[in-house]
């Protein structure tokens, strides 16, 4: 399924009656099976895009379309993951993975089957009866991915899912996520502030400006090994792409 933002603007009311524009006139498209990253300075409304796609709130103007249908509420085709793993601490890992299926009319036996399948998919065998506090940060994030995949979403939204991890875990997890996502062929939108991560994982990168966020550049990453960022990482071209992003984000001017 494809995801499309059509002239999307979102304003939030501030307490004193004013309005804050989070994103302004954003248009771009993520094709079916494509992996697109959105980068931008902090506070540029990256996460706002994600919340609107998940149907948590509506754009002030413009439309968010999932397979050409405007998103009007919570959407069974969209699964999202944040920097926080959002595992329910009182549930075992297996029960956590089942969480998303519980209000979708999936039978108990079916839920268990699908959860076990995703558990294996995300390399968490043997941890089904553990509780979140017993797992490392990387494993918890994998459990969160398993929960996201269990509902079989057509579109996956990732909001800085690796940013709270240490450098090594991050690389390994990026690799494992990339492979899992490539295998399932799902449309993916990754929100990140890590430029290298965007280059390593995406087909295309959207660069947003400072708030109010608008699209300043769109960069196609013409490199192989999207399903294996660790391989892409050692390619010399990666540096060029990162430099391009650098330029679009005007980081040098800001550093001066």
């Amino acid at each position: 399924m494809a995801l499309e933002f059509r002239s999307v603007t979102k304003q939030f009311g501030t307490g004193d009656g004013g309005a804050l524009t989070a994103v302004s006139d954003i248009s771009f498209r993520v094709d079916e099976g494509e992996f697109v990253s959105v980068v931008g300075p902090s506070g540029c409304g990256k996460s706002t895009l994600l919340s609107m796609t998940a149907g948590l709130y509506q754009p002030t103007s413009g439309e968010v379309l999932v397979s050409n249908e405007p998103v009007t509420g919570s959407n069974a085709h969209v699964g999202f993951m944040l920097q926080k793993d959002l595992l329910l601490p009182w549930r075992s890992i297996l029960q956590n993975i089942e969480f998303g299926l519980e209000s979708r009319g999936v039978s108990k036996a079916d839920r268990r089957d699908r959860a076990l399948k995703e558990l294996a998919h995300c390399h968490l065998e043997g941890f089904e009866n553990h509780y979140p506090y017993q797992l490392s940060g990387g494993m918890r994030q994998r459990a969160a991915l398993a929960r996201t995949l269990a509902i079989d979403p057509q579109i996956i939204l990732l909001d800085e899912p690796f940013s709270a991890l240490d450098a090594q875990t991050k690389l390994l997890l990026q690799n494992s996520f990339a492979r899992t996502i490539a295998e399932s062929g799902k449309t993916t939108l990754l929100i990140t502030h890590d430029l290298a991560e965007a280059v390593l994982m995406s087909d295309r990168i959207i660069v947003l400006s400072e708030r109010p966020g608008s699209v300043v550049a769109e960069i196609r990453v013409d490199l192989p090994h999207r399903e294996e960022p660790l391989k892409r990482r050692i390619m010399p071209e990666v540096g060029d792409y990162a430099a391009q992003l650098f330029k679009h984000l005007k980081l040098e001017e800001k550093a001066a």
């Binding site: 998940a54 948590l56 919570s74 959407n75 969209v78 329910l88 998303g100 209000s103 979708r104 509902i151």
Partner: peptide, 21 residues
């Protein structure tokens, strides 16, 4: 945690479902 509530809402839980779960 508002994010947990949002997650539950995105998973289509009813108001009561969000409360109990």
């Amino acid at each position: 945690d508002r994010d947990l509530v949002n997650l539950a809402r995105a998973y289509n839980l009813s108001r009561l479902g969000v409360f109990f779960k």
